[in-house]
């Protein structure tokens, strides 16, 4: 089964992960800008990060036949520093014409503070002025429900925002309907301890259906599993869900959302034959 991981931080992962993901059927990923595990000291640090996301990582992914897409922003955690955030937001437009950029993300809230909300709105304003897609991070654990409601309040109050062009990520049982009922796309994150397990993600799909929903690993520098999406595929198979439903969640839905991006270049549908041909072409290239 071919799949797309629509949220994974490959900058934090080893090359072997690309190899294993490709072996499990991964054909594309998208990598949102996120917190590096420490607060960066200057906007110049973000310039290097954006170069990594738009130049280095696509090449690393391509070695394994995986298409790499990216989202740009300053994350909610560092958004507490409003002055730095404004400097970073000012340099994002320089990178918006890079071919693998899908939009602005992952923006959102972390501890639901006033500064975070200010910078969230300024990112949304940039996305509206540049007609970009938006990928949204919702907070962790006890902050998630309140933060998700606050994010949806801000998006609904900005009349320029089309919910069909916004993906609300890290939804769980208590926030998924807020996202879907308000017309947004949503993502479930399969992450140990703090987010969804593959089993709970499939429960959610059984309850809300297959429209405007997808699943990701959010693999990063924490304890996480870059093969979490294939695990969810296995869980759907274990319960006897049809291949068409699985493919919709792990392939067609992310693709349908990404296709709205300004710079989207369509690629051929991943059928078994097409994939075998491209793999043998890569092998020939390597052996030459």
């Amino acid at each position: 089964m071919y799949y797309i991981d629509p949220h994974i931080h490959m900058i934090s992962r080893v090359t072997d992960d690309y190899q294993r993901m490709a072996q499990c059927g991964c054909v594309a990923i998208s990598e949102p800008a996120f917190w590096a595990g420490f607060d960066r000291g200057s906007a110049e640090g973000f310039r290097d990060y954006f170069r990594h996301l738009t130049e280095v990582e696509p090449k690393r992914a391509a070695q394994f036949g995986i298409r790499h897409y990216a989202w740009l922003c300053i994350n909610a955690k560092e958004a507490e520093n409003v002055a730095l955030s404004r400097e970073v937001i000012a340099l994002i437009p320089e990178y918006l014409d890079k071919p693998n950029v899908l939009g602005i993300g992952e923006i959102g809230l972390n501890k639901n503070t006033r500064n975070e909300a200010t910078i969230f709105q300024e990112h949304v304003d940039l996305a509206m002025k540049t007609n970009e897609l938006i990928l949204i991070h919702t907070p962790h654990l006890e902050d998630k429900y309140k933060g998700t409601r606050m994010i949806i309040d801000m998006l609904k109050e900005d009349k320029r925002v089309d919910p069909q062009r916004v993906l609300i990520d890290h939804v769980e049982e208590h926030t998924v309907r807020q996202a879907l009922d308000n017309g947004f796309w949503c993502g479930m994150t399969l992450y140990p301890t703090t987010k969804c397990t593959p089993e709970r993600a499939v429960d959610i799909i059984e309850m809300v259906g297959t429209e405007r929903i997808m699943a990701n690993s959010a693999g990063d520098w924490g304890k996480s599993n870059p093969l979490a999406v294939p695990e969810m595929i296995q869980e759907m198979k274990r319960r006897g869900h049809p291949e068409a439903a699985i493919r919709k969640i792990v392939y067609e839905n992310p693709l349908a959302f990404f296709r709205q991006s300004n710079r989207w270049q369509d690629w051929p549908a991943e059928t078994g034959e097409e994939r075998k041909e491209s793999q043998s072409r890569r092998k020939e290239k390597v052996t030459q």
Binding site: R114, Q121, L141, K144, Y145, K146, R149, M150, H174, R200
Partner: peptide
């Protein structure tokens, strides 16, 4: 049950929160 337990571990939301 899963949704109700999520709510137990969640902070309250006030729709009148002060927007910046």
């Amino acid at each position: 049950r899963a949704e109700r337990i999520q709510q137990i571990f969640s902070l309250d939301y006030d729709p009148r929160w002060q927007r910046p």
